[in-house]
Structure formats: C-alpha cells, structure tokens
Design a protein around this nucleic acid. Structure first.
Length: 278
DNA sequence: GGGCAGGCATCGA
DNA sequence: TCGATGCCTGCC
C-alpha cells in the first residue's frame, strides 16, 4: 500500500480494487454519504473521515497515524481483492458478478454497530435504515468534532441498555426497537460478548447471535461478516436467494465452494443481482 | 390506498 | 419441521 502525507491529508495510490461508490453503496454500511464536493463523509470506529477519489489516488482527510491504525484495517487494505476475484470466479456467473463488482471491499466495521444496523435492516429499505441509524446516533451517541463540523458516534450498548422502548420512539424503528434494547442489555449484563465471538468459529458466532431475539440467520451472518471480520460468512437474503435459484441448483448449492472468500463472493453476487443485468 | 421492503417470532398442523 | 401470518413504518 503506497501512500504519502500531504498537509492534513493522506494520499493513497488507488488500488485496482477500490471504488468508493461501490464500497459504500453495496449495502454493507449505513453511515457514509456523498457530498456535493465529491467527498464521502462517514463515521466509523469512533472516528470521522472524509475521503475523495482523485484520479489514480484517494485522498483521506486524516493523520497518517489514523490512516495506519484505523482506516487501513477498516477498508481491508491488506487484502488482495484482485486475487480474491480470480479465486471466486469459478463459473460464468460469479466471474461476471466479480467483474461487475470490481472495486468493492468488505469494510471491517464495529461489531455492535453492525449488529444493531442489521437488526434494523430487517424488512426495511436502505433509506429508512440510514435514517433510523442516524437518529439513534444523534439522540444517544457522543458528539465528535471534525474539521469544524459536529458528528455523532454510534452509541455503545451501555448507553442504551437502561432505556425503555418509549425513549426510542422517535427513532421510528417500529418493532425492531425492542430487539435493539434487548441486545444492548444482553451485552451489558455480560450474557453476550461480541469480543469473544471474534475468536470463535464463524458457525459458533452465528449460533450465539441467533440466540438474541430478533436476530435470525440472515442478520447474524451479516453481523459476523461485516462486524466480526469473519469473511467466510455467507448471508443469504431474498436477492442472493434469487441469484442462487436462477444460476445454480438451489438444492445442492453450497457457499463453501468459495472457501474463505465466501463473504466477498456473496457481496459481489448481491451487488450484481441488484445493480447489474441479471 | 394497499402492497411491499435486504426478516423474525410465533403458532398451528 | 415447515408454512402461514403479524409486525412498525414509510415509500411507492
């Protein structure tokens, strides 16, 4: 990864597999927004960042220390996605999906934020999910200053655990509110540790998460893939299911054919079926 | 205005 | 064990 510091920016040589629009709009995250000046602004991992693609480089408005410690892991910059695309292109469909989704990277997000966000995502649309998550942060998250602007961090479970559903009415999250509060309490009371789940197998982590009310197979898979760094998880939502039914024998399809890359394969397939031709 | 959206829990067979 | 149904809300 080649980069240089320029004033208060880090200028990164743009990898072949780095497309900000695809990364932020492929459905894995809910707190990144494109501004009119071409900068993407996001809050993640307790930090705010603006970044902009400038030809063959990407400008990160952050210190080189934050770039190294926070954003390199967050953007999964240590992984060779060109090699991943080659490995998962095991048939014409995944080859097309991987080519179409070239530039996507799986963000290594905060576990708690990811769990909550995907609890909110159930039976919901992106616009509304983003609205609910944003209101949750503004209402209960700490303020953080960045380049003269005020942003809001995602509230930790401790901030929510003691609240009642009526306190979260203005989120307009509907029946998902209770699920969020319950998950926060399970964590605060020590019955569930997301940190411990980082060090167990993908199957064990999914099993533990589905113990939570309002967390089924799909949400648990998203939480472990995007929040616990378990890149072999394979969330199947209605779109991916549609793709599998159309291009494979749904009875015998097994995501383990993609091995450790299954989660990335899933994201290419998801992005392709939603934004591509077939 | 009612169908539906990137699920889940519950209930009945 | 599996299929049907209700669930909050908001946007077609």
């Amino acid at each position: 990864m080649n980069y240089r510091v320029e004033g208060s920016s880090v200028i990164m040589e743009r990898p072949e597999d780095f497309d900000a629009e695809k990364i932020f709009e492929c459905g894995q995250c809910f707190r990144w927004n494109l501004q009119e000046d071409g900068y993407w602004t996001g809050v993640a991992l307790g930090h705010v960042l603006k970044l902009r693609e400038e030809g063959d480089t990407v400008r990160f408005l952050c210190s080189d220390d934050d770039f190294l410690k926070v954003w390199m892991p967050y953007f999964d910059l240590g992984r060779d996605y060109t090699a991943v695309r080659a490995r998962i292109s095991i048939d014409p469909f995944t080859a097309k999906a991987a080519e179409f989704g070239k530039g996507i990277r799986i963000l290594q997000q905060d576990a708690w934020e990811t769990l909550c966000s995907f609890i909110v995502s159930q039976c919901n649309n992106i616009k509304r999910i983003k609205g609910i998550v944003e209101r949750l942060c503004v209402l209960f998250g700490d303020q953080i200053a960045y380049h003269g602007e005020v942003h809001y961090l995602f509230p930790p479970p401790e901030r929510l655990a003691h609240l009642e559903e009526k306190d979260l009415e203005s989120l307009r999250a509907g029946y998902r509110t209770g699920y969020i509060l319950n998950a926060a309490r399970e964590i605060v009371q020590g019955r569930l540790s997301l940190d411990i789940l980082k060090n167990v197998t993908t199957d064990k982590a999914i099993e533990a998460l589905t113990e939570l009310r309002g967390v089924g197979i799909k949400v648990a898979n998203c939480a472990v893939l995007f929040g616990l760094g378990k890149i072999d998880a394979f969330p199947v939502d209605v779109w991916v299911r549609r793709a599998i039914e159309r291009h494979y024998d749904a009875e015998t399809f097994d995501s383990t054919v993609f091995g450790e890359d299954a989660g990335i394969a899933q994201q290419y397939i998801f992005y392709y079926i939603r934004n591509g031709q077939d």
